[in-house]
Amino acid sequence: MAHLLAGGGGGRGKQQATTTGGGSSGAKGDHGGHQIGVSSASREGLRYPSNGKTIYHRPLNRSKTAELSQASFAYLFSEMVSYAQRRVTGIQDLEKRLNLQGHPIGLKLLDLLLIREPARNQTRPLNIISLLHFIKINVWQHLFGRQADRLEKSLNLETPDDYMIYDNEPLVNAYISVPREMSHLNCAAYVAGIIEGVCDGGGFPARVTAHTVGGKEEGEMWPGKTVFLVKFQAEVLEREALIGKG
């Protein structure tokens, strides 16, 4: 279900496989693997895969059906959560760490999704609304295979510039049961980190947090419903006002 970054798992696994294949065929084969790129790279001390294919030789586009298994993602994610859980002082700290794990993905995802757009649609989001639409539609479609469920602007008069992205059933939480004493924890903080990365990369610095809003009652339709609260920094709102005028 979950699409991760293009250069991620599958690709490198293949490269590794070919390298080990070369090694097992004996010293001679291993030497052959070294030859490629020796002239330019020997002083860098880098090793190149024996087939000579680097990340630059791989296409950026991938077919629509290329999806990753949800089970393997869930397994990886559970490890990521327990990794983040080491030496944390509290739930906020844990969410912060999950957020930090997602952040670099968001930064890179923005460029990847832009380059996959057809040339005429390749535009940087210039205002908050187009940025959030990009997240709701493109980012969600890429990561989870569907759009986010709702996009809202805060009705609270004290925080008029907060935006909310709703997901009824976050994919990352599918196999996570939060213990009672940690009931405030929402592991979708990782997704919040990705959103934050997209915002930061696009020039809209923001803080994004994930909160569970689903009811606890019996028969609740979306018990795992999560809201991603996007708080843009003051300078973004200031610029937004200026651009709107001009």
């Binding site: 970054l5 990340i55 950026l60 460029d111 380059i115």
Partner: peptide, 11 residues
């Protein structure tokens, strides 16, 4: 740009 995006895809 295409090559740059490939560069940043490296984990």
């Amino acid at each position: 740009y295409e090559n740059y995006v490939k560069a940043i895809m490296s984990p």
